[in-house]
Design a protein around this nucleic acid. Structure first.
Length: 423
RNA sequence: GGAGAGUUGGCCGAGUAGGUCGAAGGCGCUCGCCUGCUAAGCGAGUAUACUGUUAGUAACGGUAUCGCGAGUUCAAAUCUCGCACUCUCCGCCA
């Protein structure tokens, strides 16, 4: 949620930012509405002050057995007026809010201005594309050949985009989750979290999924609960409506969760194998920081995610997303794309975002400064650390052997208990 | 799923024949005093949001908030209705 006070003070700044984010701006409507609302509030508060005062007088009169009927009558009239004005205010607030909640966060100044993913800027990379002396297969061919992934049966059970891992494939999936979670907890000092996978509307609103992205989530209608698209949603909401201690910041959480996405409108794109799924697993890192620290933390968060790929020996590149490609709530975001030699493509395995106070405003997450006891919104950040399906793609394709088998990266072997997947 | 009890400020906990209750008291915390040190003691302070005056993120004022929402009333923490959550018992179940 954008800050209406700042918007009031500097609308042009917001207009420029929103335009870079490719958002429709109705700022004039918001500002006019806000103006009207404030004058009404002032007026109504004045009347309420009178009512409070006179009501006390009535109480005193009655106690002294004196006649108060004149005043009561007066207040009856006043009460009607107040009620009408309160209704008007509520209506104005509804209107104002309905627009405000659909406005995305502004891009940070260090995010390149641009329209689409072609304007994203590669800022760094690690490792390089490995060379092979034999003909490469893509992950689906490898996996089917090894019998570790059964997409047709997944489709039979649930529909397309629901993977069914079998045997060593299932074990590899579980190993990756444990490896990544242990890694972040033990090496990067995150607090491990195991969150609910179903969340209510307030929670989905807090991180910015609602109201605009409702169509992208699975809804359990009978209970009005959403299947989470990422652990970011429940984990960020841990501190919803709370005032945190300054000394608790930065707060670092790492959580595994299943992720469920309807991927509405993306049919026909990246459909092969594990590249785009309705259900997948991910370890997510979430941090709460003081405003002045968030961009330093953002860099560290990126490193924490990179660390996973480096340890697994996978080549990747990092993109600084342009304003137009940033998600609704993000001010800045790095995407990490891992190289898949068989598909000959980079796949996004992690998004590392700084939301500044955008989510904190929506979810009302604040902290108290020790110096002056003032309350402020925290900054929230998160990064995938990382999502498994495309990681599996990269592992299978990178470590495939001429005979169709796949060698397990060293760091994973204590988790898989095997060092090779073969027929 | 059925029946009952509950939800007050950072915590504990008063407060129901509606009125001076943003809310007693205690604990905690902050500042000051006192004191070889510590502890104890004494004094003061200790919510958030919106809004106004103002050059002011300073100061002062107003409004709202006692789980959430609506209602009754001149006036509601206190009455009525709906909802959420917690606890207990029964049923069901991994």
């Amino acid at each position: 949620m954008l800050d209406i006070k700042k918007l009031r003070e500097n609308p042009e700044f917001f207009r420029t930012g929103l335009k870079a984010k490719r958002a429709e701006t109705k700022l004039d409507e918001i500002l006019a509405n806000d103006e009207k609302r404030r004058s009404l509030v002032t007026e109504t508060d004045l009347l309420k002050a009178i009512r409070n005062k006179v009501s006390k007088e009535i109480g005193d009169l009655k106690k002294n057995k004196a006649d108060a009927s004149d005043k009561i009558e007066e207040m009856q009239e006043l009460g009607k007026k107040i009620k009408a004005m309160d209704n008007q205010i509520a209506e104005l607030e509804d209107q104002l809010n309905s627009i405000l909640v659909t406005l995305p966060n502004l891009p940070h100044e260090s995010a390149p201005v641009g329209f689409s993913d072609t304007d994203n800027v590669e800022v760094s990379s690690w490792g390089k594309k490995p060379l092979y002396t034999f003909e490469l297969k893509d992950h689906l061919d490898i996996a089917e050949n090894l019998g570790i992934l059964d997409m047709p049966r997944g489709a039979k059970i649930s529909g397309s985009g629901f993977p069914l891992y079998m045997g060593k494939g299932a074990r590899l999936e579980r190993a990756l989750i444990n490896f990544m979670l242990d890694f972040h907890v033990e090496k990067h000092n995150y607090i491990e979290v195991y969150p609910p996978f179903l969340v209510n509307r307030d929670t989905a609103f807090g991180t910015g999924q609602l109201p605009k992205m409702e169509e992208d989530m699975y809804l359990c209608n009978a209970d009005d609960l959403f299947l989470i698209p990422t652990a970011e949603v429940p984990v960020t909401n841990i501190h919803r409506d709370e005032i945190m201690k300054e000394s608790d910041l930065p707060k670092k959480y790492a959580a595994f969760s299943g992720c469920f996405r309807r991927e509405a409108g993306s049919y026909g794109k990246d459909t092969r194998g594990l590249s785009r799924l309705h259900q997948f697993n991910k370890v997510e890192m979430v941090q709460f920081t003081k405003p002045e620290e968030s961009y330093t933390v953002h860099q560290k968060l990126l490193q924490d995610a990179e660390d996973i790929l480096q340890t697994l020996g996978l080549h990747y590149r990092i993109l600084n997303l342009c304003s137009g490609d940033l998600s609704f709530a993000a001010a800045k975001c790095y995407d990490i794309e891992v190289w898949a030699p068989g598909t000959h493509k980079y796949f996004e395995v992690s998004s590392v975002s700084n939301f500044e106070d955008f989510q904190a405003r929506r979810a009302n997450i604040r902290f108290r400064r020790e110096s002056d006891q003032k309350v402020e919104f925290v900054h929230t950040l998160n990064g995938s650390g990382v999502a498994t399906p495309r990681l599996v793609i990269a592992i299978l394709e990178t470590y495939q052997q001429p005979d169709g088998s796949v060698v397990i990266p060293e760091a994973l072997r204590s988790y898989t208990s095997f060092d090779k997947i073969e027929k």
